[in-house]
Design a binder for these strands. Structure first.
Lengths: 155, 155
DNA sequence: CTTGACATTACAGCCAGATGGAAGGTGTAC
DNA sequence: GTACACCTTCCATCTGGCTGTAATGTCAAG
């Protein structure tokens, strides 16, 4: 399949695919006689995996090291297993914060809805975030080593 | 409290705080006679909220619009409530993907551990991602409008 | 009265992760 | 045979969110 089809099936742009190839995240595909990239089914899988892994906070570089486990000897294997285990750990903590903050956002929304719309023009009443809203959340949450993909990356 | 104390209490850098002020995410604080920024307790709350909201995938601009609900009239209120509701929705879907992908990463790790280390040098065996690993995951997951903060933002 | 940690501003630079555009080749449908 | 979508490479640019640097000011402790 050509790059355009792969792109639409995997839900990314063609630019992105070429970029991934350039940084070694996906292997160079076969080429048709006219020079067009020619992908197989597996490529769709791989791109989807990349998207999901990215969503968990793995960087493209980390994903590359996971995808490229073969042919690098024990050391790399252990390194990657370690990376994965630490990441899963961080991810679990992140999920916890996420759940808590989600609930906080719900509270915030309820509150915003509960306000009399007329009060919205009153600078003293329609302030959605107030002291106390965060009580019990974010205390001691250390999720620092975990990070998420760059800006235009949508979940 | 001075910027340094606020920074360490909220778990961010002083640069970050000044940057937030610059983009209007936090209000300009009082100044001491010598020109130093002077913050109150509420500022710590606010910064923590920002961190958590950011972790759920809200951009700083979106957070700003939530934080700045007052004094903008009904329209803005409804707009923000809408933003929040859609975001919570997206977040729920994202959490689902995240949980699934987490499990997938666990599987991947188990698999990597199960491989005989000697095979790691064999390009044909130690390929951690293979067709099939993603089966049942990422199908139809559309979390597109949700996005996460820029690159150095750690969870 | 100097050292050292802190603060100030202004502005440049960095990073991941794309994204855009120019200039040109390909291929199929009408 | 020409429109039109789609492909190619190369290179520049954008975005979000910081982060660093320089040049300078403030202030408490020893």
């Amino acid at each position: 399949m050509k790059i355009g089809e792969l792109a639409s099936r995997a839900g990314v742009g063609t630019k992105t695919i070429r970029y991934y190839e350039e940084i070694g995240l996906i292997p160079e595909p076969e080429r048709t006689p006219n020079g067009y990239r020619d992908y197989d089914e597996f490529a769709v899988e791989r791109l989807r995996f990349i998207r999901d892994a990215q969503a968990t906070g793995l960087s493209l570089t980390e994903i590359a090291s996971i995808l490229d486990l073969r042919g690098h000897g024990e050391g790399t294997c252990f390194h990657v297993i370690d990376l994965l285990e630490r990441h899963i750990d961080d991810l679990d903590r992140h999920l916890e914060t996420l759940h808590k903050t989600r609930d906080q956002l719900v509270t915030l929304t309820e509150r915003a809805k509960g306000l009399d719309p007329e009060d919205c023009t009153d600078p003293n009443r329609c302030q959605t975030i107030t002291p106390g809203i965060n009580v019990g959340v974010s205390a001691g949450m250390k999720t620092d080593h975990l990070h998420v993909a760059g800006h235009p990356s949508r979940f």
